[in-house]
Amino acid sequence: MIQLTINGQPQQFESPINVTQLIDHLALHGKRIAIECNGEIIPRSQFSEQILDHGDQLEVVVAVGGG
């Protein structure tokens, strides 16, 4: 088992996963989002290559109304 922290919430996974798998897991496929892992942006082009492993801190963001 590995643990990822996604937007501050811990979540368990059977084994390391790539970012595309995470997006499917979170039902965010097709949504306009941006993802940061341990403070670094993960470019969309690297979603299927970048492997997420135990202890990774992820931020998944969207655009919302603001001034």
Partner: peptide, 18 residues
């Protein structure tokens, strides 16, 4: 202007997007 915020994990299946 728009703000950038954490998405609501697990609550956004059909939520409209700005």
């Amino acid at each position: 202007t728009v703000a950038i915020r954490r998405t609501n994990i697990g609550q956004n299946f059909n939520e409209p997007n700005l």
